[in-house]
Design a protein around this nucleic acid. Structure first.
Lengths: 326, 326
DNA sequence: TTGAAAGCGATACCAG
DNA sequence: CTGGTATCGCTTTCAA
């Protein structure tokens, strides 16, 4: 920057201004500076700038994993919303609270100017660190009433309850339930709770024998379906609370020649292209993943750009999409 | 840090050492420092550290988009390989060379210590900037012989040629070709070239009428298939060089009751769970997406950690997976 | 509108 | 093994 300043015959300070508030610099001076920047190939050093100004332009995003399309959609929303004004750092927690904590520490050390967590459960230390650092923070995912600061998401419990009730209204009485493993995953746990609530409300038995946890994957969804349908459990419908598991179940039914929904009804979750296009198209729950990312990013940016701190809980809801599989 | 130093009755310098080279500090002193860190809740400021040491621990990754699962798999590989030692910044180019350039400028300003680009074509300025900054850089994706510095990937052209030859050997003679739009996408262009090469080599006509560009998406793949099969084009096989397009084609054939491969053979690309599990399982090309991410990250880290600069071209190849759809 | 001086919070380097 | 001092490249603040 000194080089640029010399070449343009101004002080470094003026160069700095020209870069951030071109309008307060005389057009003539500005021209000279721009020419000098061009000639020297100068690239501002944001590390120095950040240290000096005590703020960065980096937003940190923590997702459980990049393997799950749902989180990636949210990340897309975040990335699109941030645009050129902010840079994006992404870390993954590996679905563990400790992993999340480690990522938070790393981000805080980098002095990110805002954080987005895809999770609403945290270790006490995670909460404390974020609060003490007073970094603008949005939690996404399962809606909670008392966020660290702001949250945007939907109620997994209500969504699962709504889908289960839909199945009950369609006349199904033995409804199997399949989710990804519940350990350290509040979202899956909430869905299971919603499912159970609906059954109880309608006087149906909550039978652990037909509530399965399955590893992520198409194959795994198919296996879960087979496990529920064969043997003596006699389910008439299966609700799989994961996009990939759900599609896997339908594809497996196709392979075995089971008719959907006559032999077995299948409902999915986190609607996507595949669920829409399999045979038959699947009843599912649509979650506004991308929109959540955009909103979360927007809320963080607002705070970074000056809006005062305020608790905020934004419920973006969900939608039950009825298709031919139920 | 000064607070910690005071509390531990040592200099700031010693605290700094304790954090980075605990082994050179007397155990007793170390204990005091650790206690002080605990008490003050001190979090190192990496911005300051980076400015001082003139190097960050941030690796920048640029992908065309987060919407394409293939790029996300590579990103996973990168993220997994980096582990805790480095932080990851992700930017997307929007599939344009100018977008990539903007992201490179942003990363260089952030003084990332290494960069991974998912692209091997760049604007002249992009190449120049990276070379002048002398930042360790790995390009992934379509293999080229003269990378900026290092590259790891596979030959899209060879892969497409191999698949086309496989179809020819199976006895197909009118082979339709579908890819995503070629504009600013060297990978898609290379595949088309490979397809054409194979046809020529076997004395088959290269007919632009049966070479389609389709927007990404399951629907779009189905439409392309229908367009090729109906009408008077009489293709006997279709090669779709995109995972989603390919699955979309099979699902559409299922809906219409077309028998695969008897009525129409379908080959895909970038093999994934879906292509494996549709009916019938699809012949496809397997690319080592995840491994590419790991290798790229490994190569960058090696350079950052001191291995000398050296041109490197790593071909991770591909594999033709034969299944029932052809 | 422009400039000079004083940090920002760490690390490098050299003494002790 | 520990400490002092200069410095990294920019922004803040205040004065001209």
């Amino acid at each position: 920057m000194t080089d640029v300043a010399k070449l343009a015959r101004v002080s470094a300070m003026t160069v700095s201004r020209a870069l951030r508030n071109p309008e307060v610099v005389t057009p003539k001076t500005l021209k000279r500076i721009e020419a000098a920047i061009e000639r020297t190939g100068y690239l501002p050093n944001r590390v120095a700038g950040s240290l000096s100004s005590q703020r960065t332009n980096v937003i940190g995003l923590i997702v459980p994993s990049l393997r799950n399309a749902a989180f990636v959609k949210t990340a897309q929303g975040v990335a699109d919303m941030l645009g050129q004004r902010f840079d994006l750092m992404i870390a993954h927690s590996g679905y563990t609270l400790k992993g999340e904590e480690a990522a938070v520490v790393a981000f805080l050390s980098q002095r990110v100017c805002g954080m987005i967590l895809h999770n609403t459960r945290h270790t006490p230390r995670t909460r404390r660190l974020i609060q003490e650092a007073a970094v603008p923070c949005v939690e996404t995912g399962n809606l909670v009433s008392r966020p660290i600061e702001m949250t945007v998401g939907f109620s997994n419990r209500k969504a699962a309850r709504a889908m289960t009730e839909h199945l009950i209204h369609q006349g199904y009485r033995r409804i199997g339930f399949v989710s990804v493993p519940l350990k350290e995953n509040d979202r899956a746990a909430e869905r299971r709770a919603g499912y159970a609530e609906a059954l109880k409300k309608h006087g149906l038995a909550v039978d652990p024998d037909i509530m399965l946890e399955a590893e992520a994957g198409l194959k795994s969804g198919g296996e879960a379906l087979v496990q529920l349908v064969t043997g003596r459990r006699k389910v008439d419908a299966v609700f799989l609370t994961d996009d990939v598991l759900a599609t896997g179940a339908v594809l497996e039914a196709n392979r075995r020649g089971w008719r959907i929904p006559d032999d077995i009804a299948i409902a999915g979750s986190d609607d996507d292209e595949y669920q829409q296009n399999v045979l038959p198209p699947m009843t599912s729950i649509r979650f506004p993943r991308y929109e959540i990312g955009r909103r979360a990013a927007g809320m963080v940016m607002d705070r970074v750009l000056g809006r005062p701190r305020r608790r905020a809980v934004v419920d973006l809801g969900f939608e039950i999409i009825r298709r031919a599989s139920t």
